[in-house]
């Protein structure tokens, strides 16, 4: 027992890490990484089919089925999008928000979920400020849970609607995806990556279809270890270099509410990372510009870019409803469609 011996590396075996039991319910969509390529193709195809369907026929698909929207964070876009999607399939929706009395009184997520289930909810759409909340809710209720954003973690329907938007522009609306579908496509995700669930879901999804993902932002908002999050992900700190390589530019909002004391010089940030008309026009004149919203004009991008011809921001919103119709349908009909897609 000589403590001065220099340690010698030995080859040792260790306790294994258990395989994930999630999702418990085949209708759940917790992570963009849970979907197989077939599952993604199926959702894309259903999104188009449902979008083109006669609304009077469409709203019989989930007639009288009960879907709860459980929103712990205020959200206009995502909540309305899910609500419209569920309603246009004929489902009854109930909104429970963080302003609801039970949540204000400190009821746990588990108890709120169990209560919704007892009230007859057949699926729950959850937006929550804690990363992982959707996993907790699913394991406690075993209902189909659609993750509408959990903390800084994931927002899988956003990644799917982004994908639909990208495919419409670059691949003529292809619906069957393969590992080569986005081969040769570079997508830059720019800005507050650290706090972004949109970035994380896209980082999981796009490289599986062959896309190269460049992450771009200052160190405070983009730690080096982000590059280790998965294959196909590279950090490019120089915004202009990133623009030059990109067919898709995804701009993110600075999430002031999650900065947790982090000091950021906004003028410096804009000088380095704001997407302006001249930058876009000279460095990426054919690229499309995406933004998950809400946008802050004059900060991460200029009004001219937001409203300009390369902007696909409003298309994203429209694609959101179509994707969410497909995902809500899948949540309630997953068993009938032969299980996990």
């Amino acid at each position: 027992m000589n403590p001065t011996t220099t340690p010698v590396r030995r080859q040792l075996s260790h306790p294994p890490v258990d395989a994930s039991p999630f999702p418990y319910n085949p209708g759940s969509l917790l992570s963009a990484g849970d979907l197989s390529l077939d599952g993604i193709s199926h959702i894309l195809a259903r999104a188009t089919a449902l979008e083109n369907q006669d609304p009077l026929v469409r709203n019989r698909i989930l007639a009288k089925r009960r879907v709860a929207l459980l929103f712990y964070e205020s959200s206009t876009r995502t909540r309305t999008s899910f609500e419209l999607a569920a309603k246009s399939l004929g489902a009854d929706t109930t909104l429970v928000s963080s302003l609801s009395s039970s949540i204000e009184k400190g009821e746990s997520l588990k108890d709120t979920g169990l209560t919704l289930r007892a009230l007859g909810a057949e699926a729950i759409i959850l937006r929550h400020n804690s990363s992982g909340a959707a996993w907790l809710l699913e394991s406690e209720t075993r209902l189909p849970v659609l993750n509408a954003g959990d903390g800084m973690h994931e927002h899988p329907t956003q990644a799917l609607l982004d994908l639909r938007t990208i495919l419409a522009h670059l691949k003529a609306g292809a619906e069957t995806v393969t590992p080569e579908t986005l081969a040769g496509v570079t997508v830059s995700i720019v800005g507050d990556i650290l706090h972004s669930r949109v970035a994380r879901s896209n980082m999981l999804l796009l490289p599986r279809l062959g896309a190269r993902v460049l992450l771009c932002g200052p160190k405070e908002l983009l730690p080096e270890l982000a590059a280790l999050a998965g294959p196909g992900i590279t950090i490019e700190r120089d915004f202009e270099a990133a623009l030059r390589q990109s067919q898709v530019i995804m701009m993110l909002r600075i999430q002031a509410e999650r900065l947790a004391g982090l000091q950021l010089d906004l003028e410096e940030y804009k000088a380095a990372y704001q997407l302006t008309g001249p930058r876009l026009g000279t460095l990426a004149p054919t690229a499309i510009v995406l933004h998950p919203g809400p946008i802050i004009r004059g900060l991460e991008l200029t009004a001219g870019v937001a409203d300009g011809p390369q902007s696909a921001i409003l298309e994203q919103v429209k694609n959101g409803v179509a994707i969410r119709m497909a995902v809500v349908e899948r949540a309630l009909l997953a068993d009938k469609q032969g299980g996990r897609a």
Partner: peptide
Amino acid sequence: TQGGSMNLGPMSFKLGLR
């Protein structure tokens, strides 16, 4: 470590945890 709930590393980044 304020606000931290797991080890800082690739896993905490992936899970969106401080």
